[in-house]
């Protein structure tokens, strides 16, 4: 049981009894806070998923929210049109996302760098229009209304478990040969292929795993929101959030997206909650600032104790001796 697993279990145990304290007394935890936490867990999961393809594999996906939308619509259509209960509908939603990822990924993942990014952005915008046009199935622009179900603690628990599972999964994957190969692809795809890595397969698997998990979040979101339409589900800003949170925390690190998502959610909820009309503007400015001034993210900058000044400072603070990377795990 590593340090990480311990930390995760601890966090989980700490978060577990929160809904028990929900009550009318203002000092206790309100339903609104519980809802807020649920949103944060979703964002942590989304950012971690994006990090798998964008951070580890190095394919910066500008349309990852398409899988969120497909998960939401897959779930929504099954519930609203076919009358299925939530759980099997969610499975369908996630499957739709994965199948689409396999199909689109086998084309777009052949593209390199910015071409991949733009092709995925195109996928996203195109899918929104397709959903809008496919009225008989999706309700088109007027959207779908799902059977309402108000149970904040339940959503809290589901998203908590999901976030913990995804973080743990990515941490575990990072330590396997497969995870290491994703890094190799990011660092030098031609070299990786020549050294025996089936890069196409690796990329598609990573892409589909991320899509699956994002599809699940989409389905959960749809059920919690009880209403979906193309604009609210296929929302550009959702991808921006994933990218921004991951980049703030640190691309290709396990903790990066978690820290980034928590930090940005906190900022949004607390710092600029009263200026919501500026929200997206601030978000855009923040992303530019991160890209220009903190390209390695918090984890990357603090973790690299040899070549960044912030990292050196952090290293001195953490331990007096300079780093000795003995346990170099791939």
């Amino acid at each position: 049981m590593g340090r990480w697993t311990l930390l995760l279990v601890l966090l989980f145990l700490l978060a577990l009894p929160l809904p028990k304290f929900v009550g009318p007394n203002p000092k206790m935890i309100s339903n609104a806070l519980l809802f807020s936490m649920t949103q944060m867990f979703m964002l942590i999961t989304l950012a971690s998923n994006w990090n798998l393809i964008g951070g580890f594999t190095g394919y910066v996906d500008f349309g990852h929210a398409v899988f969120f939308g497909l998960g939401a619509y897959g779930t929504g259509v099954m519930m609203a049109k076919a009358g299925w209960p939530f759980a099997p509908a969610l499975v369908i939603g996630a499957l739709v996302a994965v199948i689409f990822a396999l199909l689109i990924g086998s084309a777009t993942l052949r593209l390199k760098g910015p071409y991949f990014s733009i092709a995925m952005l195109g996928t996203f915008v195109a899918m929104r229009e397709i959903v809008r046009v496919a009225k008989p199935l999706t309700g088109g622009g007027s959207g779908l209304t799902l059977p309402p179900y108000l149970n904040r603690p339940l959503f809290y628990y589901i998203t908590l478990v999901m976030a913990i599972l995804v973080i743990w999964f990515i941490w575990w994957l990072r330590g396997t040969q497969f995870g290491a190969s994703l890094i190799a692809i990011r660092e030098d795809e031609v070299g990786a292929e020549m050294r025996g890595i089936n890069t196409t397969l690796h990329k598609i698997v990573a892409f589909s795993l991320a899509a699956f998990s994002t599809g699940v979040v989409g389905g959960l979101w749809a059920y919690q929101n009880t209403f979906i339409d193309p604009d609210v589900v296929f929302f550009e800003s959702r991808t921006v959030e994933m990218v921004m949170m991951t980049m703030l925390g640190g691309l290709g690190t396990v903790a990066g997206p978690v820290i980034g998502a928590a930090l940005i959610y906190w900022l949004r909820d607390v710092v600029w909650a009263n200026f919501l009309q500026f929200h997206l503007i601030v978000q855009g400015l923040l992303l530019i600032a991160i890209v220009l001034f903190l390209p390695e993210g918090l984890m990357g900058t603090l973790g690299d104790r040899s070549s960044t000044s912030l990292g050196r400072l952090w290293g001195r603070y953490m331990n007096a001796s300079p780093q000795t990377p003995q346990e170099a795990q791939p």
Partner: peptide
């Protein structure tokens, strides 16, 4: 790490 990334696939 470079070496470990080049095993006998």
């Amino acid at each position: 790490e470079n070496m470990l990334l080049s095993p006998q696939w």
